[in-house]
């Protein structure tokens, strides 16, 4: 897969960071506004995919990227499970998925206990997974056409 024209590349360069930051915004406001870990993660992965589409793929670099994404994905799920499991230790009554942190004030950014933290972990996981799936498809297609 070859890259696109200079115009596309330049515009992608400009809007990709904005898309990425918007994804982060959706994730950290997951407990206050519509959206959350999954939606934000998909938007962040969209920024990655846009880059690959505009600039074409350099296979060795993408393979390396895929390994890194797999690692991020596994650790994110593990993180999610560990945070859920911490409830077993800190909630006082041995409850899985217990919201053991201070709930804070309704409507503030730092509130709702551990839900924002779980949202961040889910965001990382979804972003890594969707980007990894896309890269796997691209790598497969290129190998097939060779």
């Amino acid at each position: 897969m070859k890259g696109m024209t200079l115009i596309v590349k330049k515009i992608t360069q400009i809007i990709c960071p904005i898309i990425f930051v918007f994804g982060i915004y959706i994730i950290i406001h997951g407990h206050l506004t519509p959206g959350g870990g999954f939606a934000g993660g998909v938007i962040m992965a969209g920024a990655f995919i846009l880059q690959i589409l505009a600039n074409g793929n350099i296979l060795p670099a993408l393979r390396k990227e895929e390994e890194g994404l797999e690692f991020l994905e596994s650790s994110a799920i593990l993180g999610f499970l560990i945070i859920a499991g911490l409830g077993l230790l800190f909630s006082g009554s041995v409850v899985f998925f217990a919201n053991f942190l201070n709930k804070g004030q309704l409507g503030k950014l730092i509130s709702a206990g551990f839900i924002p933290i779980e949202n961040i972990v889910i965001g990382a996981e979804v972003c890594a997974a969707i980007a990894a799936i896309f890269i796997a498809l691209v790598v497969y297609k290129d190998e097939e056409s060779k």
């Binding site: 596994s74 593990l78 499970l81 560990i82 077993l88 041995v94 409850v95």
Partner: peptide, 24 residues
Amino acid sequence: NSLIPLFVILPLGAAFIMAIMGRF
């Protein structure tokens, strides 16, 4: 009984620990 969720936590956690550790 607080042992019940272990049926899911143990294999699920192990799967992702293995996905990370098995590489090294």
